[in-house]
Write a protein that binds this DNA or RNA. Structure first.
Lengths: 196, 196
DNA sequence: GTTTTTACCATGCACTCGCATGATAAAGTG
DNA sequence: CACTTTATCATGCGAGTGCATGGTAAAAAC
């Protein structure tokens, strides 16, 4: 068994175990032992791939970033117009069903955690611009296609759109908004961007 | 010394110690012992006012809600027009200086924590509508005064505005936006609501 | 076939955790 | 005065924490 192990797969496996623990019991319940048990491996095996708890959390955070990027890209690929891409990708970031709630619970936990951990803050600062510039680009494309008002500041609109998505997460997870409420809010906002 | 103790003051004192611990070392560093040390009292004394850790966190969360409410009310009182009130109160919620960053760090930690703790989720669900309805009311007043476009849906605009404020917090605390960036974003968004 | 490397495991250590308990001193009450 | 109540404290307990270490079996290298 040794030597012929896919390290990348192992790391992903550990990261996903961290995700499940965070989702089920919160960030404070994450420990090397608990994660090892969740991953179905011994604590020593986990330590072989990740020497410290900080590294483990960082791994899980990076993996979440990758995952979100993949999901957004996948959804974007199935749309035809820039505005459709924009709407679909923002919806993909919102906690509208179990899977997206799962992602958002973990993301929210890391948002709080990254404020206190410099390593995680760095990862956040690296990932954020990718999504923001993607949004801005789609907005510009939609403007070029005449789907969005030409006078909009694409960069600012992207920031506002992303902030809206993030800001609605907790209220929804906590039960204040229904998924329908959130989707209606997004459409209300997008509609305003069209009329100019 | 016993008997003539102001319970409310003690509770506030403990809650503020919790706030400082969350701000400095994060939610995961909160423990009865650490909070007691931060509050300058023995662990037993803390336990007298708050029997369990959950209760302690809940106390700190409720206190934050009260604090935010007070700050918003105080700022609102010094404005003349509804639109000024709206702008000033949203700015009050953003991490634009040390004191407001302090508040937002703690708030963000509780947003993540409340997803996993039902007690905290209840507190969140109780506090949220207060702010949202306040915003909606100010928007309607601004519309009546001709400061905001009449066709706006006050409820939805309030939700979007608050979501924007919440959503921008992490990115700012992590250093992606400067305070000036955030203020500019808000003004950009508010300006759009005026022109109709 | 010996040696080295890789992947993994069990265990130990010093420490912290939440929580419960029993003692104690000060203040009000009869 | 005795006596109850209030506020506080020190301490103990079992469990869990991050991390380090030494050992081990299997595969690869020579």
């Amino acid at each position: 068994m040794p030597k012929i192990v896919d390290h990348e797969a192992r790391r992903r496996h550990i990261a996903e175990a961290v995700h499940r623990v965070i989702h089920d019991k919160g960030m404070e319940s994450v420990s090397l032992r608990v994660v090892a048990a969740e991953a179905g491996m011994s604590m020593g095996a986990v330590q072989y791939y990740v020497t410290t708890k900080d590294q483990m959390l960082l791994l899980a955070l990076e993996r979440i970033g990758i995952w979100i990027g993949e999901r957004v890209a996948a959804v974007a690929a199935h749309q035809s117009t820039p505005l459709d891409v924009l709407r679909a990708t923002v919806l993909e970031l919102l906690p509208l069903d179990d899977e997206r709630s799962y992602l958002n619970r973990i993301g929210l936990a890391f948002q709080a955690s990254s404020v206190v951990s410099e390593h995680q803050a760095v990862a956040m600062r690296l990932g954020l611009p990718l999504l923001l510039s993607f949004f801005a680009e789609q907005i510009r494309a939609a403007q070029a296609a005449g789907q969005l008002a030409a006078h909009l500041d694409a960069g600012k609109e992207a920031s506002i759109l992303y902030a809206f998505a993030q800001g609605v997460v907790n209220a929804t997870l906590v039960g204040h908004y229904t998924p329908e409420d959130v989707a209606a809010l997004l459409d209300y906002h997008l509609a305003r961007l069209c009329t100019g």
